[in-house]
């Protein structure tokens, strides 16, 4: 449906936005201490990848890939199928991560990564700086 080609200077902006969003997610994963926040970052990174894949399947003046008499150009169904699978698997991963977080909170009474690492270091007799 979208006529992207006719405007050259913005023909890649979907990819730029996907990269910016993915990098925000990546920063949340590696730069924040709170485990819940890390999972939120993982979700954001995932959706950015979905955005990138779906953008690759778009065809100018195409329509949704559902067969109809009045249309001849359809967008590519393959990336959409792959992303459908990825969304569901992503939620399965998220559920697993949250279950782990609940157990960590029960056992260690914290969900902050540096407090957990400190605890682990004390148990092993050495506190590493990282």
């Amino acid at each position: 449906m979208i006529n992207y080609i006719s405007i050259h200077w913005i023909s890649h902006y979907n990819y730029w936005a996907a990269i910016v969003i993915a990098m925000v997610g990546l920063y949340m994963i590696i730069g924040h201490n709170n485990l819940i926040k890390k999972v939120a970052g993982l979700n954001i990174l995932q959706t950015a990848v979905f955005l990138m894949y779906i953008s690759m399947g778009v065809i100018t003046d195409g329509t949704a890939p559902i067969a109809a008499e009045t249309f001849t150009i359809y967008s590519n169904p393959l990336p959409q199928v792959l992303m459908l699978t990825a969304i569901v698997v992503g939620v399965a991963t998220t559920a697993m991560a949250f279950a782990l977080i609940v157990r960590i909170k029960e056992t260690c009474n914290t969900v902050d990564e540096d407090e957990l690492l400190e605890r682990e270091g004390h148990q092993n007799g050495n506190v590493e700086e990282w």
Partner: peptide
């Protein structure tokens, strides 16, 4: 972007189930 099936799934699973899971986690912890 002409991907209605992905949009349904993202609205139901990404926006619905994932948010509920996060709220449950916040409640439990």
């Amino acid at each position: 972007m002409d991907a209605p099936d992905v949009a349904f799934t993202e609205a139901a699973v990404g926006s619905g189930v994932a948010t509920i899971l996060m709220l449950v986690t916040l409640t439990l912890t």
